[in-house]
Every structure is written in C-alpha cells, then in structure tokens.
Simulated scan of single mutants.
Amino acid sequence: MEKLDSIIFYNIDKAIRSYRNYAQRQLKANGYTITIDQWLIIKAVLENPDITQNEIGDLVFKDNASVTRIIELLVKSEYIIRTPHPDDRRKTHLEVTESGKEIIQKVQDLVENNRKTALENVTKEELEIMNTALLKISQNCINLKK
C-alpha cells in the first residue's frame, strides 16, 4: 500500500494548507486582523467590479454560505459596501471602500514576501513544470464534468 507522502494530491493539499497557515500567521504577527479568505474576497471584488457572490465563491473556492459570512464581516469592518443590485433585486452590488483598498495595498508586500519565502530553493524551471502540470490536472478534472 502506498504511503500518504507518496500521493501527489496529498502533497499538493499539504503544501497549500502549510502555505495558508504560514501566511495567516504572518498576517497576525504583523498586526493585521484580516484573514487570508477576507483578503482574497476583497481582491476578487476589486479586480472584478461586477462580480456576483456565486462567482466569488467559484473564484476563491468557497461555498456560498462561507462567502456570505465573509462578506458580512467585510461590510462590518467597512472594507466593502453592499448595495442592492440596480437591475436585479435578488443580487447585491459589492464595492471596495477606501479602507478596503488600503488594506489590500498594505498587505501586498507581506503577501509577496510570503510567496518568496514559500518558494525559496524552488527553481524557475521547477515552478514552470509544476505550474504546467497543475494546469493539466485541473483541465483533466474540468473536462470530466462533461
């Protein structure tokens, strides 16, 4: 029987979880109260002004209930403004506030340093091969939905 650490998907998940835990610890250690998920959602709204909550969930790999809960926290923290959608009452329009833009900017250097630390001793060639392989895996699984 194969061992866990020889299973590629186990190692991918372990790497992602290790990185997220490290990144969250770095945020806390630097005095930020924002979470990785909150940062991702603010960034998603900032980069996609007309994005829906369902689309946010797809983009950041979260279910609708989690996205709704995180957005509620972001509204309370005044990082995002939520208003009724002008054309569809079932939807809401999300807009990043000035303080939301500021937190994204402030955290950006930390995010870049986190990535640099996580990718230490990984060559450019290894990154390119890994990225290509991960994209192929994703595409294979997406194609299976059909």
Rank of each mutant, 00 (worst) to 15 (best):
M1W: 10
I8G: 01
I12L: 13
A15H: 04
S18T: 13
A23V: 03
Q24T: 07
Q26D: 04
T35G: 03
I36C: 04
D37N: 13
D37W: 00
A44Q: 06
V45Y: 01
E47L: 07
N48M: 02
D50I: 05
D50N: 13
T52M: 05
N54M: 11
I56C: 03
I56P: 01
V60L: 04
V60A: 04
F61E: 11
V67G: 00
I70G: 01
I71Q: 01
I71D: 00
E72K: 11
L74R: 00
V75S: 00
P84T: 11
H85F: 06
P86T: 12
D87Y: 10
D88G: 03
D88A: 08
R90V: 03
H93N: 12
H93A: 08
T97P: 06
T97A: 07
S99M: 06
S99P: 05
K101E: 15
I104G: 01
D109A: 12
D109F: 06
L110C: 02
V111R: 09
N113T: 10
N114T: 05
N114D: 15
K116A: 15
E125A: 11
E125C: 01
E126M: 14
E128C: 06
M130S: 14
N131D: 09
N131H: 12
L135R: 13
S138A: 13
N140F: 15
C141N: 14
C141R: 14
I142A: 07
N143T: 09
L144C: 06
